[in-house]
C-alpha cells in the first residue's frame, strides 16, 4: 500500500458515494447513465469473486464489499426506486458494442485460461470502457449537472492516481501488471477531454457544464 493507491481508492469511494447521495437526496437520477452503473456493478461482481477464494487483508475485503453494495444500491435507485426520473431516451449507448469485444478480448488475452482469471480480465477490460455510456449521454444532451461532473472528476482522479501507484510499485517492488496497466492507461485517456471541460467550465463558472 502506498499513498497513491490509498488516495486512489479513497477518490473511487468518494465518487461512488457522491453519485449515490446525489440520487438519494434529490430523489432523481436525471442525467445519470443507468447503463454505466450496471456495467460498474458487473465489473465489481466479476472482479471480486476472489472474495470467496483468497483473503488479502481486512481493508481489501471491506472495500470490495462496500463497492459491491454501493454499486447495486445505485442500480436499484436508478431502475427501481426512482425509475420515473431515469432519462432512458438519452441513455442510448449500445452496451453490446462494449460487452462483446470486451468478452472476446478477455478470452484471448489473459494470464491463465481459467474461469476466475477470465472473469477478472473481463472486469479489467470492462472497467476501462464502462464510463462511455455516461460520457456519451453528456455529449448527447450537451450538459451535465455540476454534481455529476464532480462524480466524474473523482472517478477520473482515481484512475490517474492508480497510474501513479503503478509507477511507484514498478520502481519499489518491480510490480508490473500488464493487463491492468494497459487498460488503466486507456481508461484514463477517456477522462482527459472531460478533465479539460471540468477545469475550464465547471470550476471557473458555476452550475451546469454545457458543451460548446
Amino acid at each position: 500500500m502506498n499513498i497513491f493507491r490509498l488516495l486512489g481508492d479513497m477518490c473511487h469511494l468518494v465518487a461512488i458515494i457522491i453519485l449515490f447521495l446525489k440520487i438519494w437526496r434529490s430523489k432523481s437520477c436525471a442525467g445519470i447513465s443507468g447503463k454505466s452503473q450496471v456495467l460498474f456493478a458487473l465489473v465489481f461482481t466479476t472482479r471480486y469473486l476472489d472474495l470467496f477464494t483468497s483473503f488479502i487483508s481486512v481493508y481489501n475485503t471491506v472495500m470490495k464489499v462496500v463497492f459491491l453494495v454501493l454499486a447495486y444500491a445505485t442500480v436499484y435507485l436508478i431502475y427501481l426506486r426512482f425509475r420515473s426520473t431515469y432519462n432512458s431516451e438519452s441513455d442510448s449507448f449500445r452496451v453490446e458494442f462494449l460487452l462483446v469485444p470486451v468478452a472476446g478480448l478477455s478470452f484471448l488475452e489473459n494470464y491463465a485460461f481459467a474461469p476466475l482469471e477470465i472473469l477478472w480480465t473481463f472486469s479489467i477490460y470492462l472497467e476501462s470502457v464502462a464510463i462511455l455510456p455516461q460520457l456519451f449521454m453528456i455529449t448527447k444532451t450537451g450538459e451535465a449537472e455540476s454534481i455529476t461532473t464532480h462524480y466524474l472528476f473523482f472517478l477520473g482522479l482515481y484512475r490517474a492516481l492508480y497510474l501513479a501507484n503503478w509507477v511507484w510499485r514498478y520502481h519499489t517492488e518491480g510490480f508490473f501488471d500488464q493487463i491492468a496497466v494497459v487498460s488503466g492507461v486507456v481508461q484514463t485517456i477517456f477522462y482527459c477531454d472531460f478533465f479539460y471541460l471540468y477545469f475550464t467550465k465547471v470550476l471557473r463558472g458555476s452550475g451546469k457544464m454545457t458543451l460548446p
Binding site: R5, S54, I56, N60, K64, F67, Y111, Y162, N165
Partner: peptide, 10 residues
C-alpha cells in the same frame, strides 16, 4: 504452469 499472484488491488 503460471503461478498467479494474488490480486491485491481493487
Amino acid at each position: 504452469q503460471i503461478i498467479l499472484k494474488k490480486k491485491d488491488e481493487l
